[in-house]
Design a protein around this nucleic acid. Structure first.
Length: 421
RNA sequence: GGAGAGAUGGCUGAGUGGUCGAAAGCGGCGGUCUUGAAAACCGUUGUCCCUCCCGGGACCGGGGGUUCGAAUCCCUCUCUCUCCGCCA
């Protein structure tokens, strides 16, 4: 959620921000709503004061005065009540409008309307040159019985799959490896709920824009998370933290669920785009200091890069342009790992800074040194996601004989197994 | 699934129609004392909105109602808890 005061002071900034991101919003209407709300509020305040004073007199008034006052005040208070209902309506209109205004990207974010506007900022590792005809992960999976997509579809519909044998173990190994890495870096490990209340979806910024992307459990008014960021962020929802306990550095291991609505026909082969996957996610809550946020953004990015480097997977980091950003993000980098089967890079990680957007929505605050409550800044990044990373691993580490070498970092988590097939 | 209980400030918890933004305790902050700390004692300490200021207003889970006046009474929704049953 955007700061109403800032919106009033500089609506142009938010208009431009929304435009850069490709969102349509009616900021004038929100401001008009705010204006009417304040006018109503002021009028009500004045009359309430009046009513309060006269009511207080009632207690010690004589019979006659009392009767007179009662008649007068009866209507008076009815009118106030009517206005209060109008006010409440305005307030909820305003709130609804505010929820639709995207957070303007930082000034230095490249402007663009789709991924062609992203800027590659560095590469690590060399895409492998195969002396043989490399297989893609679907073929490798079939060869070693690592997963079963057909039966996944039979059981759960399109974009579903089973992992089995070393495929199942590899996912587990990857998750453990990534989590251990973060715990060593001082992150608090979590396993969180994957089913959350609507307010958590709103709080993290995925609702109301984006409801189509989440699975709903209508009967209970609950939703499946698309990322543990939602649950991790909501952990401190409605709380007031102390400045000393910041930054909070969290890591969660969960299943994630995405409907992938509107992506029909896209990435239909293999395990690249699926409805359910495993992920270790990093979330940080820090003071409302842009410099600190930037440092932590870099830390989150570095963590992910080192995790990928540890697997020996070539990748590149791209700075994501305005048009590819979500509602709340003000800065975003993706890590894309080399996937030989695609003959290109595929997104495996996404690192975002939100400023106070999410904390405002989640009513998450901290008490500053001056005793004032403030909204902290939040950030998050993937640490490892499967099966996307499995694709990169299988395809990159395949051998001429069709076997796959297990990355050294995962061997301990594979019970010492160094090779698949 | 059945039966109850409850929702009050950072926390615990009192408050059943006006003097209640709300007792008390804890916690926090400031001070006295102390070589320092602890203890003790004194003071202070909710959130939000409008306003240049002075000041005003709202908030006792949400919404509606009764009343001149509601934390307090009524309705409703949401949430939490306890017991029983069922089950992982």
């Amino acid at each position: 959620m955007v700061d109403l005061r800032q919106l009033r002071d500089d609506p142009e900034r938010f208009r431009k921000g929304a435009e850069k991101k490709g969102f349509t919003v009616n900021i004038d209407e929100v401001l008009r709503c705010d204006d009417e709300r304040r006018r109503l509020q002021a009028a009500i305040d004045r009359r309430r004061q009046d009513l309060g004073l006269k009511s207080a007199r009632m207690k010690k008034a004589g019979d006659e005065e009392r009767r007179k006052l009662q008649d007068e005040l009866k209507n008076f208070s009815r009118e106030i009540k009517i206005d209060e209902i109008k006010l409440r309506q305005k307030e909820s209109d305003l709130e609804a409008g505010l929820l639709l205004i995207p957070n303007p990207p930082l000034e230095d974010v490249p402007v663009g309307k789709d991924e062609s506007g992203n800027i590659e900022i560095r590469r690590w590792g060399e895409p492998p040159e195969f002396s043989f005809e490399p297989k893609d992960h679907v073929e490798l999976g079939a060869a070693h019985d690592l997963f079963d997509i057909e039966r996944g579809v039979k059981v759960a519909g399109t974009r579903s799959y089973y992992l089995k044998n070393e495929g199942a173990m590899l996912e587990d190994a990857l998750m453990r490896y990534a989590m251990d890495f973060l715990v060593k870096r001082g992150y608090t490990p979590f396993v969180t709920p994957v089913i959350v209340r609507e307010e958590c979806m709103v709080g993290s910024g995925y609702f109301p824009v984006g409801t189509e992307e989440a699975y709903a459990i209508e009967k209970d008014g609950l939703y499946l998370i698309g990322t543990s960021e939602v649950a991790l962020l909501s952990y401190h929802k409605d709380e007031i933290l102390t400045e000393e306990e910041l930054p909070k550095k969290y890591a969660a291991s969960t299943t994630c669920f995405r409907r992938e609505a509107g992506s029909y026909g896209k990435d239909t082969r293999g395990l690249y785009r699926v409805h359910q996957f495993q992920k270790i996610e990093q979330v940080v809550i820090c003071r409302d200091d842009p410099d600190e946020m930037q440092k932590l953004h870099e830390e989150l990015l570095r963590n992910a890069e080192e995790i990928v480097q540890g697997l020996g997977l070539p990748y590149r980091v791209v700075e994501v342009c305005t048009g590819e950003m979500g509602m709340g993000q003000i800065k975003k980098h993706d890590i894309e790992c080399w996937m030989p089967g695609r003959g290109g890079f595929g997104e495996t990680h996404s690192c975002s800074s939100f400023g106070d957007f999410q904390s405002r929505r989640s009513k998450l605050r901290f008490k500053g040194a001056d005793g004032k409550n403030r909204f902290p800044f939040t950030l998050n990044n993937t640490a490892a996601a499967s099966p996307r990373l499995l694709i990169a691993i299988l395809e990159t580490c395949q051998n001429p004989d069709g076997s796959v070498t297990v990355p050294d970092a995962l061997v301990p988590y594979m019970n010492g197994k160094t090779r698949i097939g």
